[in-house]
Design a protein around this nucleic acid. Structure first.
Lengths: 124, 124
DNA sequence: GTAATCAGTTACCTTTTGGTAATCAGTTAC
DNA sequence: GTAACTGATTACCAAAAGGTAACTGATTAC
């Protein structure tokens, strides 16, 4: 594995910040996955994610469009419909998300799962 | 690559949330790397990261200790010193961080860089 | 005209996160 | 005893993120 270098201000971490800004927050990954799964329309996405409000969804979709994770197109018709579709670029996030998921799973095991815990001095 | 499944509430994403909670925020990764690089003491870590305040550092170190990313030991002596050392478990984050870094770098290229610009015109 | 659907926006509020500055407590050097 | 270093904690603020609920506009169905 590549070794991480330490320069003046660890500017190698700027991209890390970027990524965290783009997929961080409470809803972004949820929304992205919902769209990946085939939900295309605003209300459809909204309904697929419990507790997500229209305001937040609206804002997140804008961010995600800016970051080229989705494209938005308006279909003129009966009740006007918008269609959100994932970009190819968005697919490159799958690997990142799986890595996060993986680590989280192992971390959970590490923290709670080991019943033969060797850690006597756990402080509250 | 493993396919992502969609269940009732996408509970497979709970671990993703965990991970983001643990390494998210403005300072956690910075602090972790500083410690990986060999900074052991409170002031040492503080000084290695510009703009980081004692209050925030103090809080983040506690969180990181709780999450078993570092261990804290107090050495009694002259001016009392504490020593923070990275755990083996923390090392497993390297892969995750590199993945985030990688994606961020490529994303930057995608968004700004398509003119064969490497990294000259990076805006902060 | 009334209701209902789609796709949002707006105003207002609460919670979380981060930042500033002062202070505390212990110890050494002068 | 006063300053300076260590490792913090506390009180007080400011900004960002997130939540609630009402409302706009357009169109279709009744």
């Amino acid at each position: 594995m590549k070794k991480m270098e330490h320069n003046e201000c660890m500017s190698a971490l700027l991209p890390v910040r970027d990524t965290l800004d783009i997929i961080g927050g409470k809803w972004k990954i949820l929304i992205l996955i919902s769209i990946w799964e085939g939900n295309k329309h605003f209300r459809e996405i909204e309904r697929s994610i419990p507790k997500l409000s229209t305001k937040v969804l609206s804002k997140e979709l804008k961010d995600m469009e800016e970051n080229q994770l989705i494209t938005r197109s308006v279909l003129n018709g009966f009740p006007v419909r918008t269609e959100y579709t994932p970009t190819e670029h968005s697919k490159t996030l799958e690997k990142v998300i799986l890595e996060l998921q993986n680590w989280g799973t192992n971390h959970r095991k590490k923290i709670f799962g080991d019943k033969s815990v060797t850690n006597n001095s756990v402080h509250v």
